[in-house]
Amino acid sequence: MKSGTETSGDDSLSAVGQVGGSFANGLRIQQTVTTPVYSTPKRAARGAYTFAFTGPDGKPVSVSNLAFTVTDIDSTAGDFWDVVELSGTFSSTAASGVTGTGTTDSPATAASSNTAFADTTSSAGNLNVTYQAPTSSVILTYWNNAQKFSGVDRSQGIYIAGMTFSAIANNC
């Protein structure tokens, strides 16, 4: 995997406007498969994105009640089929177009191989996530489960929206 798209520069991890059918801004995570042939690499080609919480001194700190939404988990036949896994212990609620809970054993993925949702206006590709226990980081693993590629670019993108958490007093 590489950040960005096959045909353009790296515009991954950039802030964007409204996503996931809400009025929340999002963080774009965009990536593309880099194998030279249009094979099906599945989880072998994946991006891992770490959200780490640190204090002013740069040292890790824990936060509680971490919550966010992964939006635009969708698919287009012959192009991409989003799969998202999250580290740690959390609860999640999947929207109508998503199956799985977001764990390694039950990844969140588009419910079918050809269901594209509108990035900004549709909430059908959303996974709402909540970490109740204190955590200092979350790793989001993102990969492409397309069964075959039709020759179009293999770029894929999701968004993180509405991230909230509470600071733990002893971290201050």
Rank of each mutant, 00 (worst) to 15 (best):
N114M: 07
A108S: 12
S64Q: 14
A44F: 10
A44P: 02
R46Q: 15
S106H: 11
A118N: 13
S113C: 02
V84P: 01
G97D: 02
G100L: 10
A94H: 07
G58S: 07
G78N: 02
G78E: 01
P36G: 03
Y49C: 12
S112P: 01
N114F: 01
L66C: 08
E85L: 08
V83A: 11
T99W: 04
P60A: 12
T35A: 05
F117E: 01
D72A: 04
T50K: 14
T121A: 11
V84R: 01
A108C: 13
T103C: 08
A67T: 15
D105V: 05
T120P: 00
T76F: 06
S112I: 09
P60V: 08
V98C: 06
A52I: 05
T40S: 15
T35D: 10
F51I: 15
T109M: 13
F80K: 01
V37G: 07
P36S: 08
V83I: 10
D57T: 15
A44E: 13
V83T: 12
G78T: 02
G55Y: 09
S112G: 12
F90H: 10
D74E: 09
D57S: 14
D82F: 02
S113I: 06
V84H: 02
P41R: 02
S92E: 08
T121Q: 05
T54Q: 14
G97W: 00
T89W: 07
S62H: 13
G100T: 09
G47V: 13
D119P: 06
S62T: 15
T99Y: 03
A116M: 05
A48L: 11
T93L: 08
A45C: 11
W81I: 01
S91Q: 14
T101N: 13
S39L: 05
D119Q: 06
T99E: 09
G100Y: 07
I73L: 10
T54I: 13
D105I: 02
A44T: 10
A44V: 07
